[in-house]
Design a protein around this nucleic acid. Structure first.
Lengths: 250, 250
DNA sequence: CCAAAAGTGTTGAACTTACACCCATGA
DNA sequence: TCATGGGTGTAAGTTCAACACTTTTGG
């Protein structure tokens, strides 16, 4: 017979009490880019209709950033993911409703402060993995994000806002795209993050002017039309340019 | 006979265990502007040579932002201070050295995660107040910041970096200056935050073009030369302009 | 009346925006 | 052959840095 979510939480209670810092959780908003749209990686918990951000707890002997990396590795199989801690959520009521059915002495049902990261990852390098409390782990389209548990919708929205602000200051492009990509793909990434259309010619020139891309002697074949050139980021020049920001208004 | 810092911490141990969340502290980097330079509010603990950021703990029945506001009110006497949560610090070793002399069962000597805010405040509205563990609470010049305890120097540097980035996106000017100020004062604020000189004429025009300032029918008299006009921020227009950022490179 | 500071004008360079055009090429 | 993408041209408008000029005011 299948163990319910409640039974699972009760069974794991003592283990968590021993190994994890009380009151501190780490949540990750994992962004990917696929099929010209921005995706987010979400779990679906057993016994609920709601989705949740991949998250976990802080081991007593673990650094904060290491916890975020560990949690992401468990969920995506990938290592060295680009992570950006963007805000810590600590309102009293943030998990009240969700845990209302549980007894208050349950470890999981204490007041938690959520230290939140957003992660940027090459969609194709991810193999979404469920955790022990979930019945699904999937990429969903940011444009129609589902209802999420607790305050995860708030966390997600703030992550998206921060991503938008970081577009000219953080290596967003190189972390969301595969190593080789075409100029139209890069433009679509910018458009979908900024949620507005950009002029093709100007985008092309602007990107070239930054000098952060290397043009490869390859093209993407197999498409329906002219094979577009492939580019890759010049990591050194990209990093240099980001030090002062890309200084553009888009 | 004066109670030592150690004695004080031991005496308060049970009280904190009862009322405050374990493992979570809130630190504030408080910025002010005075005499053409950027200042930071620091405490000096008893029995040490090091300075510390004003900080405190999170009450079990208190929201995160409320804790930051409470701590600031205790230290500055001011309410409704502009606060910006910018990062959470949680390395294992962050307080190791500092608390090494204390026994490990002391509440204060557990592993703490520091949720850090920077605060912007009108220098003149502050009456620096020592807490019970300090022998001094003073404004010090950011340009020659002293040695600080634990990882507070790191926290301070990241706050300053964030402030620089936020200059065009957050109401930095209106929160650091008194209600009425002159254009040269505003320019000096920008210069000291950005750490570079700006062209006077262009600064003047740019500020006017934003339309975020109201020119008053008053001047600052008493100076050695021409009395400059006084301005104040038009809060509504300032807020509107900040929604999209001030879009300037300075 | 003069020095210093406030405030304004001007100008050339640079950049943005928006649109248009040509070429290449794969289905 | 035609739709899509690569690459370039250009005109109009905007912004910027730099410098110089005028105005104001305290001593």
């Amino acid at each position: 017979m299948k163990e319910t979510l409640t039974e699972k939480l009760i069974r794991r209670d003592a283990y968590f009490k021993e190994h994890y810092m009380p009151g501190i959780s780490v949540d990750c908003v994992v962004f990917g880019f696929h099929d010209s749209s921005l995706k987010i990686l979400l779990n679906k918990l057993f016994d609920t209709d709601q989705w949740s951000l991949p998250g976990g707890y802080l081991n007593k002997t673990e650094n904060l950033n290491d916890a975020a990396n560990r949690i992401l590795k468990e969920r995506t199989g990938a290592e060295n993911i680009y992570l950006n801690q963007f805000k810590t959520f600590g309102n009293l009521q943030r998990s009240e409703k969700f845990f209302a059915p549980y007894t208050s002495d349950l470890w999981f049902n204490q007041r938690f402060i959520s230290i939140s990261y957003y992660a940027l990852i090459d969609y194709n390098s991810v193999d979404p993995q469920m955790d022990e409390y979930s019945e699904a782990c999937e990429w969903l389209d940011v444009a129609d994000a589902p209802e999420m548990m607790m305050d995860h919708t708030v966390i997600f929205n703030e992550a998206l806002e921060q991503l938008r602000k970081d577009l000219n200051n953080k290596p967003v492009g190189s972390n969301l795209l595969p190593e080789k990509f075409t100029m139209p793909e890069l433009q679509r990434l910018y458009e979908v993050i900024l949620n507005k259309e950009l002029n093709r010619g100007n985008f092309y020139r602007k990107m070239k002017r930054y000098g952060i891309l290397d043009k490869l002697n390859e093209r993407r074949t197999g498409g329906a039309h002219k094979s577009p050139d492939l580019y890759q980021f010049n990591e050194y020049k990209y990093a240099e340019a980001l030090k002062n920001g890309l200084q553009e208004s888009w």
